[in-house]
Design a protein around this nucleic acid. Structure first.
Lengths: 355, 355
DNA sequence: CGAGCGGTTTAAAGCGCTTTAAGTTACGAT
DNA sequence: ATCGTAACTTAAAGCGCTTTAAACCGCTCG
């Protein structure tokens, strides 16, 4: 039964402290000007009244809103993690975050509109699917930071991990374990998958394994991973490397979810992981870290991405930067229990622990 | 390079339409009063200018904010689903939603404060962990709806599914398939697990299987499910039903994640699901629905919960209800491929499909 | 001794919209 | 004609805070 207890207003604080609202306002926002005596009086009064500034009113009066808008896919745990870190980073810089979830019935465009209604000063888009042209158009009117994917859109800042390098790390790790036949499970069409696939191809080339290149169709979920597992067994495989029929002894998947589906199907089919086949995922998601899953994966270091993204936004807002930037972070390989030296038929349940 | 294009103001619309801002305001909000001619003129002008009301200003002027605040755990996909439906339901009633995610560094209290700063008119808390006393205190000053769990807190509205009934449905389904030894994997301490466990116990009693009651420790994640799988094989089991050593032929898990961990461990240990053992989860999460997983589960019908929750909030806000309500919805069993008649050793990969 | 000056404080003008109360108009009723 | 009234329309007063420009207050300086 909320009985509007007449939330105290700035005026109340001011009069209780015996000063003007102007002084009170300055003190409460820590601006220079008011003397020590005034400061103390105002702070005391505010404390006693339990005063909290009415954000709506301040936003209206101030030109600034100090609000960063974030669009995200709520069903993605990776986005969830990123959001946590964005919150923290924004907090540090005195910004607040408004989240606008994408849903089946609420596409990116609507989500962005909603953010603009809140008068967000910058838009942080997590893995945006908007075409580059739309991004560029948006960037003409607003500050926008695309997070987690490449974007060839004029004016937008980009913060992403070097996915090609990340896949490279995975391949090299497997190579180091003695694997020579390493397959790649592709992701859903889009800039992210393209880059990861590229990373795979180049790494194989670099290691002199180019003719063992095997890319099977996949996708971004468990389902696709399972399908890919089936594909890996099929004779098609040998068509890619005519003459020799050889099963890959290691697989790098587009992401952890696909890797999970893959793992599940392989194990149900009696394939020992990592004994018979090593598997590497991508994202270092929470689920990969579970002891039960213990999946070797590549981390996009979400915390660093989040910090960089918020930094990019505040540089524009507070430091007046106008030239777009692209920040590419180095991903990290996290070795766990689904990768093992080739030929090691002992399933190592515990696996190699990350540091 | 956002070049503040001087977003049009109500005044601009009004003068272009040749009327006062008062009329324009009325027209744009669809309030009765202005005549047809005025209406048209204003709407035209607004369209031509691409006018969008400045929410901040309206909020300040109006007493109302039409904002519902939602706290949620971003890492929970169930919360994610619920959020989608909340958005839709709020939309229908002309409300907007502000999401305040809980993170490691941002507990429920802070999340709620942030919502209040936005002047949300009601708080929708998804599976709140705040003690009942705190909920009650909060409810003295604000409208609060607790979603998904029981709450004995004065003044708060509760919208939840009858979890005991849900587990009962699962048990009865298994019973119908011929299972007589049905175990339950418990969840994390808390009101939710208590209720589900109760549902399990009562269902067994009802079916005359009370002496086959087996509750093993579990938890809310894959990890715990896997541990539980181990427990189910141990000799302890036989202690519960002394004299006869019998393995359960079916297991109901606290939630889908635990069920997943359980499934994984069972299958790795060579147990056929559903051939040897049937497994039922809870939540009917996205992952349960994946063809690869195809987990029989109990749905909390999130859409109905979301609608009911928003309805509860608007009833207070718009219809002036002051007495708290508790809405208990009937969950639904969704039969998929992890349950089969007892003794049926054929793994039915496709499983029974839901309608 | 008055002008000049930092350091403080504050009156008052908004921010962009809503809303109330007062003002118009047009018209049929008296 | 006069008045009342219904149907619109609008001037103006805020909503609660920020901010600008002016006012104040000792004091030092020429």
């Amino acid at each position: 039964m909320p009985s509007r207890p007449a939330r105290p207003r700035l005026e109340d604080v001011a009069s209780r402290a015996g000063v003007s609202t102007a002084s009170a306002s300055l003190v409460l926002r820590g601006r220079p000007g008011p003397g020590a005596a005034t400061r103390e009086a105002v702070l005391d009064a505010a404390r006693e009244l339990g005063y909290r500034a009415d954000r709506t009113a301040s936003l209206l009066a101030r030109r600034r809103t100090q609000l960063l808008g974030v669009t995200m896919d709520v069903s993605s745990t990776f986005h969830g993690e990123l959001l946590e870190d964005l919150q923290a980073a924004a907090d540090d810089r005195g910004y607040d975050i408004v989240v606008s979830p994408l849903t089946r019935t609420r596409d990116e465009r609507r989500a962005v509109e909603s953010l603009l209604d809140f008068r967000c000063e910058a838009l942080l888009l997590l893995g945006p699917r908007l075409p580059d042209a739309d991004l560029a158009a948006l960037a003409e009117e607003h500050h926008v930071v695309a997070i987690g994917r490449r974007a060839q859109a004029a004016g937008v800042d980009v913060v992403r991990a070097a996915d090609d390098v990340g896949v490279g790390l995975a391949v090299e790790h497997l190579f180091g374990l003695g694997h020579r036949h390493i397959a790649f499970v592709d992701g859903p069409r889009g800039p992210i998958a393209t880059l990861r696939r590229q990373g795979y191809r180049r790494a194989l080339k670099r290691l002199g394994l180019a003719d063992g290149t095997v890319v099977v169709d996949g996708g971004g979920d468990e389902e696709s991973g399972a399908r890919a597992a089936a594909a890996l067994h099929l004779p098609q495989l040998s068509k890619e490397a005519p003459g020799r029929v050889r099963m890959p002894s290691a697989v790098v998947a587009f992401n952890d979810r696909a890797a999970l589906g893959l793992l599940d199907r392989l194990r149900r089919d009696g394939v020992d992981v990592p004994g018979d086949v090593s598997v590497v995922g991508y994202d270092d998601s929470l689920i990969a870290r579970l002891a039960t899953v213990d999946l070797t994966s590549v981390s996009q270091i979400p915390q660093a991405m989040a910090t960089a993204a918020v930094e990019a936004a505040t540089q524009r807002l507070d430091a007046g930067r106008t030239e777009p930037v692209e920040l590419v972070l180095e991903p990290q390989l996290v070795v766990r229990g689904t990768t093992a030296p080739r030929g090691d038929t002992t399933t190592r349940r515990g696996g190699i622990r990350e540091p």
